[in-house]
Structures are given as structure tokens and as C-alpha cells.
């Protein structure tokens, strides 16, 4: 009914324009995050050389490359987790919505709230399951009192953990399976309302079933969120991402649509890597 009315009164272009006008992000840069010739050193050691890349809003980007190629270091730079590492120095810039994450007026804590992170090993806090979900919410004063219970339930439902834990919200998170712990950490990260999520091999310690639920979630989280996922699992990169980046020895070797990068790699190193000929 509604469809018919819409069709009879409005042409698709008009609808598109109307929808575009409703988009809350219309005045923001099309890329939520841009990395501009980033070079990073720990002491004398250069870890990343001249990396430039943009992350379009609402997409999943996979980050692949051999071990030690600097994927984790790159990811941790985006939410400034490397700032305190000894000898950390950088050239170039990382911008979040057009503002450098290192800008003097930029608030580090709000950068980290907006750019969430999920680690390779699930790392719930030593507190109850419910308190884990709302830990960040409390820290940022986003909600309090009874609202926290609502937040906890909403986020646990969002990650599909609610039914499994609803009767043991007061219990220790360490009794959950590894996959459930990782989902709990995801719920905790989502609870503070991030715009981006950085995932560093989020499923490498999980069994195939849990991996699948995490991957499904990653697909559901876009386009509301922008995700960057480091993975050694090339199948995973193909399944979840729209574009893929290959790191090699601290350099960005190739960046393109996932299907192109896997099916028609331009760089010979990419070719060897995606064909499993290189660690």
C-alpha cells in the first residue's frame, strides 16, 4: 500500500534525494577515518612506512599480511594505543571525521570511545558479566542506575548472548566459553556507542561455530559502524569485507575491493600471499 503511494507520487531520484537529506552523516567526510602517509617508529626501528589509506563509512575493511608485517601496530595506532609504547614516534597523520586523532584539542578518551577495539584473546574484566557490559558506559557516564540493566540487556541481545547468560548476569565472565567471552567483549565495546571497531584477529582463538557468529555480527554491524579487521584467515577476509589491504614488511602493498584483490591481485607479493605461498 505504502509502496504504491510512494511509487505513484515520487520518482526514485526524489526518494534517493530525500533519503540522502535524512542521512545523519551527510555533512561528514565520506571516509570516517583517513590515514595520511603514516610512518611509525619504535626507537630506531621503523615499523610502518608511508601508509596512506581511507576507510569509507559503514564498510568492513580486512587487513591481511604475513606475521610481523605491522598489522597490529597499525591498528593500535588508529585509536592511539601505541602512544605510550617506549620509543614511539610517528610522521604523517590519522584523522577521525577530518580531525587528527593527535590534535591538541582532540580528547584521547573520546577518540577511544568512538573507535572501539576487540583483541585477539578475549579480555573480560574481573567483574560480573553485567558489569563487564556496562563498564565503559559507566566510565563515560552515558547511563546510570536502572538504565544500566537496559543497556546490558540490549547489548547482550545484540551480540546474541542474552539467552545464554540472562540467568547468570551476576556471575564471573571467565566461566563462559572463549567464544562467548569474545562476544561479551564485543557487547562491552558496542555499549559505549562507537563509530568504528578495530578487530585484531578477533576469531583466531575461537572454534568455527563461534567464528561464524562473530562474522555474522560483523556483517550486521555495518553500515551503522565502520570495521577494520585484521585476520590471517583469508576466507574470513573474503566473507566479511568489502575491501582488503595487504601489508608487507610495514608497507601497504595493495588496497582494493576484496574480490579484486583476491581474484586479480596486481602486486606479485599479493598474488603469492593470497595463494597461500607465503606465510
Amino acid at each position: 500500500m505504502v509502496d504504491e503511494v510512494m511509487r505513484s507520487t515520487q520518482r526514485p531520484e526524489v526518494i534517493d534525494a530525500t533519503l540522502a537529506a535524512l542521512d545523519p552523516d551527510r555533512d561528514r567526510p565520506p571516509s570516517v577515518m583517513e590515514v595520511d602517509s603514516l610512518t611509525l617508529r619504535f626507537g630506531e626501528k621503523t615499523i610502518l612506512s608511508d601508509v596512506s589509506v581511507a576507510f569509507p563509512r559503514g564498510t568492513v575493511t580486512a587487513l591481511i599480511g604475513p606475521t610481523g608485517s605491522g598489522k597490529s601496530t597499525f591498528l593500535r595506532t588508529l585509536n592511539r594505543m601505541n602512544d605510550r609504547v617506549s620509543g614511539f614516534r610517528h610522521d604523517g597523520d590519522v584523522t577521525l571525521d577530518g580531525v587528527s586523532v593527535w590534535a591538541p584539542h582532540q580528547d584521547l578518551l573520546s577518540v577511544r570511545r568512538r573507535v572501539g577495539m576487540l583483541f585477539q584473546r578475549p579480555n573480560p574484566f574481573p567483574m560480573s558479566i553485567r558489569d563487564n557490559v556496562v563498564a565503559g558506559v559507566k566510565a563515560h557516564g552515558i547511563a546510570k542506575g536502572r538504565q544500566l540493566d537496559v543497556v546490558a540487556e540490549t547489548r547482550l541481545r545484540e551480540v546474541g548472548l542474552w539467552d545464554a547468560v540472562k540467568d547468570r548476569l551476576g556471575e564471573s565472565p571467565f566461566r563462559l566459553s572463549g567464544g562467548q567471552q569474545q562476544l561479551l567483549c564485543l557487547a562491552r565495546a558496542l555499549a559505549v556507542g562507537p563509530e568504528m571497531l578495530l578487530l585484531d584477529e578477533p576469531t583466531s582463538s575461537l572454534d568455527p561455530g563461534s567464528t561464524e557468529s562473530v562474522e555474522n555480527l560483523m556483517r550486521q554491524l555495518t553500515p551503522a559502524l565502520t570495521l577494520i579487521v585484521v585476520t590471517h584467515n583469508l576466507g574470513q577476509a573474503r566473507r566479511v569485507s568489502q575491501s582488503t589491504i595487504l601489508f608487507y614488511d610495514g608497507r601497504l602493498i595493495e588496497h582494493g575491493a576484496t574480490s579484486e584483490l583476491f581474484d586479480a591481485p596486481r602486486d606479485p607479493r599479493t598474488q603469492r600471499y593470497v595463494n597461500g605461498l607465503m606465510g
Binding site: 585509536n79 594505543m81 584521547l108 578518551l109 573520546s110 577518540v111 577511544r112 570511545r113 572501539g116 577495539m117 583483541f119 584473546r121 579480555n123 573480560p124 574484566f125 574481573p126 563498564a135 565503559g136 566510565a139 563515560h140 567483549c185 562491552r188 565495546a189 559505549v192
Partner: peptide, 13 residues
């Protein structure tokens, strides 16, 4: 360290 990193990553002071 994973506790501190988890807290950092959430933007806790």
C-alpha cells in the same frame, strides 16, 4: 596487561 588494554580501549581514564 589485557585488563589495562581493555580499559584503555574503552576510553576509560
Amino acid at each position: 596487561t589485557s585488563y589495562r588494554e581493555g580499559a584503555d580501549a574503552l576510553g576509560m581514564a
